[in-house]
């Protein structure tokens, strides 16, 4: 057997052994640890309501009704099948037009001009959060549509606002699904 062929045969055995170790045992071990110690996270941080799964706190959803706070624009309308962003440059003519339309639509229903996160699509298309400014600007509309006072809704916005992690990492943010759940509970629906 030539030396090259011998190397190929050794490679084949090595690949089989390492596939067993790294492709089966390793993921299985992590899966086991997840089941035991982090069952909620490993399962996708799912949110249940009336016995049914209504979403994941980590995934944004499409909210269009005036009763709901709305998430950021999404390149995939939060469908969840295939994730991704628009990949458009700020100078792209389509993007310039889209941003203008979003700004007009936002100003028509909310108080004040649109914050940056309301004008732009996220990179995942599943961004679960919006900026606190974005939530505050929508509070008036949401309060009116649910028969609540603006102060009540603002209190819920406040309660659902997350600061920077450890006080300095990332951006302050509001989880849209959790906020909407809180608002609907308050409205007694």
């Amino acid at each position: 057997m030539s030396s090259n062929l011998r190397q190929l045969v050794a490679s084949m055995r090595m690949m089989l052994v390492l596939t067993l170790l790294l492709g089966v045992l390793y993921p299985a071990a992590v899966w086991g640890i997840g089941r035991v110690a982090f069952a909620d996270q490993a399962g996708g941080s799912l949110v249940h309501r009336d016995g049914a799964v209504v979403g994941s706190t980590l995934l944004g959803q499409s909210f269009t009704d005036a009763r709901f706070f709305q998430g950021r624009p999404s390149a995939s309308e939060y469908a969840g099948g295939v994730s991704g962003g628009s990949n458009l440059a700020a100078s792209d003519p389509d993007q310039v037009k889209t941003v203008k339309e979003r700004a007009a639509a936002y100003a028509a229903t909310n108080s004040g001009s649109a914050p940056a996160d309301a004008l732009t699509a996220s990179s995942s298309g599943l961004d679960p959060q919006i900026s606190p400014a974005n939530a505050r600007a929508q509070a008036h509309r949401v309060a009116a549509a649910n028969g609540l006072s603006r102060a009540e809704v603002m209190k819920l916005v406040q309660a659902n606002t997350q600061g920077r992690s450890l006080g300095f990492l990332g951006e302050p943010r509001v989880n849209v699904l959790e906020l909407n759940l809180a608002v609907q509970d308050a409205a007694g629906r």
Binding site: A116, D117, S122, S123, D127
Partner: peptide
């Protein structure tokens, strides 16, 4: 106005 947030996560 877009805050360079296109394609970035909040």
């Amino acid at each position: 106005s877009t805050g360079a947030m296109e394609g970035k996560e909040q």
